[in-house]
Amino acid sequence: MSATAERESMLKLNDVHSYYGQIHALKGISIDVKEGEVVTLIGSNGAGKSTTLRTISGLLSPRQGEVLYKGNNIAGTPAHKVAGMGIAQSPEGRRIFPRMTVLENLQMGAFVHGKVDPNDLARVYDLFPRLKERVSQKAGTMSGGEQQMLAIGRALMASPKLLLLDEPSMGLSPILVEQIFSIIKDINKQGTTVLLVEQNALMALAVASHGYVLQTGQIILQDNAKALLANETVRKAYLGEE
């Protein structure tokens, strides 16, 4: 507790409201992600988890509220500028560039830097050896799990300060899910702050230090990860316990 209190806040959302046309998708979200933490957002389908990430990364601009990144309000800043500030997102559904090769996709990840840092590339290959084997394969022809690795690897190529991961475990086999979560831990240990959106609440809360529970665009619960794991509502709704 005392350790986190000293840490700087890296990302802070204050009463954020986002819309898709008439649809009010976020109804006043406030979250706080401290430097060096892994924070997770959990919630059922359509709760607004992806929308929160899209609002942070600038794909969507909120109609109301603040998105403070390192103390500056970046709400409404276009996505390409947000990317330049050190925020990388691995979007829902992977969204890799299908007609580019694996290597080209990774190079795209480093687009903000202009050129590829060999250390970043080495780190990604280290975390995902499979990608190294497939460097010249067209990304669109890879399996779902491989594409997921590529999407995360691509986000890492930006060597971000803050990494937004949208359901990184989706569509992966159980062993790979374990691996992905331990990789997330590694990434975090190497100094990247992570905001993690997950369906797999158990795993997410295991790696995270803090968690928020979203429901229909609002935060209904927040606590440190251990407490949430023990929380009855969470256990019922998201861990499938009766």
């Binding site: 390409h80 979007p91 969204r95 560039f97 299908p98 795209m108 687009f111 691509r154």
Partner: peptide, 13 residues
């Protein structure tokens, strides 16, 4: 190939 993903890479669409 993917306009939104490109924006996330830092490309000014």
């Amino acid at each position: 190939q993917d306009r939104e993903a490109a924006a996330l890479m830092g490309i000014d669409i």
